[in-house]
Computed example of a mutant assay.
Amino acid sequence: MSAAEILEGGAQDVLLLCDHASNAVPADIDLGIDPALLDNHIAIDIGAAAVTRALAAKLDCPAILATVSRLVIDLHREPDHIGLIPHRSDGHLIPGNESVDKPARIARFHTPYHRVLRDQVRARRPRLILSIHSFTPCLEHGGTDRPWQVGVLYNRDTRAAHPTVKFFRDRGFVTGDNEPYSGRLLNATLNRHAEGQGRPSVAIEIRNDLIREDAGAREWADILADLAGHLLR
C-alpha cells in the first residue's frame, strides 16, 4: 500500500492536501476494535476526501490524499507526538496499538507520505496550499457542541489564513479562527511542507455533518473553489 494517492492536475497554482482522507487499515494490522468504528470521525475525516476530490476536479489542480486511517498512524502529527499512534481516541481504546513497533510503522507510512509531500511541493512550487479536514459537531466523551460551520487553522504564516477567515465571515458562515482547536498546536503538515518551504497555506476544517453526503461535499467544493480564486487574486 502506497502511503499517498496523487491526483494530477493541469493547473499548478494550488495544491490540495488531505491527511485524513482514508479509513483503510492494512490486512496485516489488527487494531483490536469494532470495525464499525472505522466509519467514525476517530478513524477518518468524514467527507474531507470527497471535498478534496471535487475541489481538485473543479480547479483542475493536483491533490495528495493519505491512504491509511489515522488510527493506524496519524500522518498529521510529528513523529515524536504522543498521539502519533493512538492508544485511545475520543474515549475508545485501540488495544492493537499498545505494543506496536513504532519505528517500523513510521518507516512504513509516515516517512514515505511526508517524502511525497516534500517532493511534490518542491517540484510544483504552488502559490497556495490548502489542507482539507473535517471535525465532528461534538466529541463523544466530554465534548461540548461545536457551533462553527468551518474552522480556519494556521500557525505563524497568516498570509492566507486571515483573508480566509474574512472570506467565510463575509459570506455569513459561523467561522472559527483557530477553532475548534488551534493550528498553533496542531499544524504539523503545513508547518513542515508549507511554512517550511515558504508556501502560503491554510488548513480548512469543515464540520462533518455538512459534508457527510455527496451534495454537501460538492457544495463546499464550490465554496472552496471561490476561496482559492479569492486568495490567488
Rank of each mutant, 00 (worst) to 15 (best):
I6G: 01
E8L: 12
G9R: 04
D13A: 14
L15M: 04
D19T: 10
P26R: 02
P26D: 00
D30H: 13
G32H: 05
I33H: 04
A36P: 06
D39M: 07
D39K: 14
N40S: 15
A43K: 06
I44T: 05
D45T: 11
I46M: 05
G47K: 07
A56P: 02
K58C: 04
L59K: 01
D60W: 01
L65E: 13
T67C: 14
I73P: 12
D74P: 13
L75T: 07
E78N: 15
I82R: 14
G83P: 08
L84D: 00
P86L: 00
P86D: 00
H87A: 05
H87D: 04
R88F: 05
E98S: 14
S99R: 15
V100W: 04
P103S: 09
P103K: 07
H110R: 02
Y113K: 04
L117H: 01
L117R: 05
R118M: 09
Q120V: 14
V121G: 11
R124K: 12
L128E: 03
S131R: 10
T136G: 06
T136I: 10
H141V: 15
P147A: 08
G151E: 00
R159I: 08
R159D: 05
T164L: 08
R169Y: 02
D170E: 15
R171K: 14
T175E: 04
G176M: 01
N178P: 07
N178S: 06
P180N: 08
R184G: 08
L186H: 13
A188E: 07
L190W: 00
A194E: 06
R199M: 14
R199L: 12
S201G: 14
S201Q: 04
I206E: 05
N208C: 13
N208R: 11
A215L: 10
G216D: 04
G216Y: 02
E219P: 00
W220A: 07
H230D: 13
